[in-house]
Design a protein around this nucleic acid. Sequence first.
DNA 1: CAGTGGTCTAGACCACCAA
DNA 2: TGGTGGTCTAGACCACTGC
Lengths: 267, 267
Amino acid sequence: MNTSSQTPPSTSDGGLTAPVVAASGLTLATPAFSPLYQQIKTLILTSLQEGEWKPGDVIPSEQDLAGRYRVSQGTVRKAIDELAADNLVVRRQGKGTFVATHAERHIQYRFLRLQPDTGEEVRAERKIVECKRVRASADVARLLSLRSADPVVFVRRVLAFQGQPTILEDIWLPGSPFKGLTLEALSSDQGPMYAFFESEFGVRMVRAKEKIKAESASGESAALLGVASGHPLLTVERISYTYHDVPMELRRGTYRTDQHHYRNELS
Amino acid sequence: MNTSSQTPPSTSDGGLTAPVVAASGLTLATPAFSPLYQQIKTLILTSLQEGEWKPGDVIPSEQDLAGRYRVSQGTVRKAIDELAADNLVVRRQGKGTFVATHAERHIQYRFLRLQPDTGEEVRAERKIVECKRVRASADVARLLSLRSADPVVFVRRVLAFQGQPTILEDIWLPGSPFKGLTLEALSSDQGPMYAFFESEFGVRMVRAKEKIKAESASGESAALLGVASGHPLLTVERISYTYHDVPMELRRGTYRTDQHHYRNELS
DNA sequence: CAGTGGTCTAGACCACCAA
DNA sequence: TGGTGGTCTAGACCACTGC
């Protein structure tokens, strides 16, 4: 194990073949000590990424994992605590710990921050406008950590609330993980697109970064959203990441904010 | 204590006079069980709110608190863990646990999400345009949990980056906590406004909610930000809260997003 | 060196759930 | 009833800070 020798009475040190290597770099600072629970967390994360447990599955109990990794339950618990805090996993007392999924009712549309100014959310009508294979432009490639001209899938869709087109989204997905994505499959699917990505391509979006601006509607966006050219619109550039911070989606959204607003919590 | 009797060998149960009352309401559900560490968290929170420890101060060590509340260090630790996760408190190994403050370099401008599209943040030039005592309109009163016509302080200011006016903010503050706030005091202060509120009025903002829209510049905002009327601007309505979710500020911001964007992280 | 937070363990018991 | 996560304790040792 990394940490030399703790554990008071008797503890068979054994598992975890790879103790963290000390970062003997240029500086003498940063001894690069990694606590046990962090190493456990990384191991669990890797199992998640490799699909050993899929979204919605139960993962082994804390006792089982403690046995597998040869550490105490408390250490596993702390590792899972952090994974739960990152929304990668969901604990349910009496039942077990589950791999988080965008398909769950309560978590659903977690990344959609637009909501009506008044009243409760209503279901969105979705229409896929377009779905085609293209080559990545320079900036799309950069944002998705690809090379220019690499194959990507481009999707354009419109979301409407109560018949009112409100959101226009242009989506770029890396070609190889999303091989075989078609307009028909996208159109026939109910439920959140991210849940569809999980079940069909094994790609789980874990977190995202957004950049938001106010811009005037261009001719194209004005037409698709049914506003006059020049109408103020919210533009949202989102990059979504899977496990280990690998970018897997670029999404440029254009939102009408006449009847809706983007909500955010600061802390 | 609430929980009947745990603690294996010997533990003098003693402190914490107020065990949580069971919510014997209409339904038989929700036994309203509150774990010990939650009760400790509430006690610490109350001490923070009452100013027993002020922003920047060290709070007593985990051992001290464990003694004071007659619980184990682990229980205090879990309470403080949650307070740290909420950014109410900052832990520093070897030194102690400190009350979080907006005055800290690293935490500074935690609520300002606008940043330049390229390059690093530069210092903002601030100008207080106006500061006056007014009576709360109906909607201002509602958002601040006041009554209509209650006294409030109104502040208007403009932030500029590299000489370019970029942010216009209208701020409403409840009258009594902010008694004595003047344009002069605000203008002469360096540093974040929220740090000023902490040191001068003992009001610490701990979290906030924002509603964001894209709108066209009105005549007034256009003039103050130096854009043409009709120019698209980001509007941000923020409500900030102190401890225990008491609203203490309403802020309506108008941002130019030509060279800047509002950043957000989803998870 | 002493004091603080940070890690790790072991064990007991509680609350919740499903069979 | 047995299994799972949740709480609580006690004690040992580590890492960091400052005197």
